[in-house]
Amino acid sequence: MRDRLNSTYTDEEIERCYGEFYEDVHTEFLKFGEIINFKVCINGAPHLRGNVYVQYRALESALVAHQSINGRYFAGKQLSCDFINVTRWKVAICGECVKSRYKQTCSRGRTCNFIHCFRNPGGDYEWADSDRPPPK
């Protein structure tokens, strides 16, 4: 993972920083309703890098989140929110990435157009990657 982001950071530092980011951003999105998936891209391709995907149980929650978050600033950058049509996460997320337990190993490297994502702390939402229902 280190080569993908910046060779000056260790994997442990990247994981710690992502954990802090996750806590801040995930907590903010939880204010709008029940989340059933939360992914942050680590892809090298500019059109995917840094994308955050939040899937809510209810459309109303997604609408309120969009109205509240779109245009706000986070870490000095203005956020731009869009609705996307991902109906199956298993097809959208790189299978090689999932098989490696999110170690970011993929034979396509930086040119992969499937989502490579950080592993959420505690494995949050990993069940959704296989299009399974949430645990009860």
Rank of each mutant, 00 (worst) to 15 (best):
K39E: 12
A92R: 06
E20T: 03
V98Y: 10
I84Q: 13
G19A: 11
E60C: 00
K90D: 14
L5D: 13
T27R: 08
R88I: 10
Y73L: 13
D24L: 11
N113A: 00
P135E: 14
V98T: 11
K31Q: 15
I35A: 03
V40L: 04
A128N: 11
D131V: 07
T87A: 08
L59A: 02
V25H: 08
E96A: 07
P46F: 09
I115M: 08
G122C: 10
P121Y: 03
L48M: 09
W89H: 04
Y56Q: 06
C112D: 08
K31P: 06
G76L: 01
F38T: 02
R4T: 03
K103I: 00
S100M: 05
N43S: 02
R88F: 15
F32W: 09
F74G: 00
G122S: 12
A58I: 00
L63F: 10
N85M: 01
K136M: 06
A128C: 12
E23L: 06
D82E: 14
Y53S: 01
V91T: 12
I93L: 12
R4N: 04
S80W: 09
P134G: 15
K39G: 10
A128T: 11
C97K: 01
R108C: 00
F38A: 04
M1V: 05
P121M: 02
P46I: 06
Q78C: 11
K103C: 05
R108P: 00
P135V: 10
Y56D: 04
A58L: 04
R119W: 00
H66N: 13
I14T: 10
G109S: 04
Q55W: 04
I115N: 02
K136F: 07
E34P: 04
R16K: 14
Q104L: 09
R16G: 00
H66T: 13
I69Q: 02
S61E: 13
N37D: 13
F29S: 03
V52Q: 03
M1C: 06
C41M: 09
W127D: 08
H26E: 14
R132A: 15
I69E: 07
G33D: 14
D24G: 07
W127P: 00
V98W: 03
L5K: 13
C17G: 02
H116S: 00
N85T: 04
P46D: 11
F32Q: 03
Y125V: 10
D11G: 09
I115A: 09
E13M: 11
T8K: 01
F38P: 00
I35W: 04
Y125M: 09
N37W: 01
Q78G: 06
V52R: 02
I84E: 15
V25I: 14
L79S: 12
V91L: 09
L30I: 07
K136C: 05
I84L: 11
Q104Y: 10
N37T: 09
E15Y: 09
R110G: 08
I93W: 08
E20D: 14
D24R: 10
W89Y: 13
A65L: 05
K90L: 10
G109Y: 02
C117S: 03
L48K: 06
V64T: 07
C97Q: 01
F29L: 09
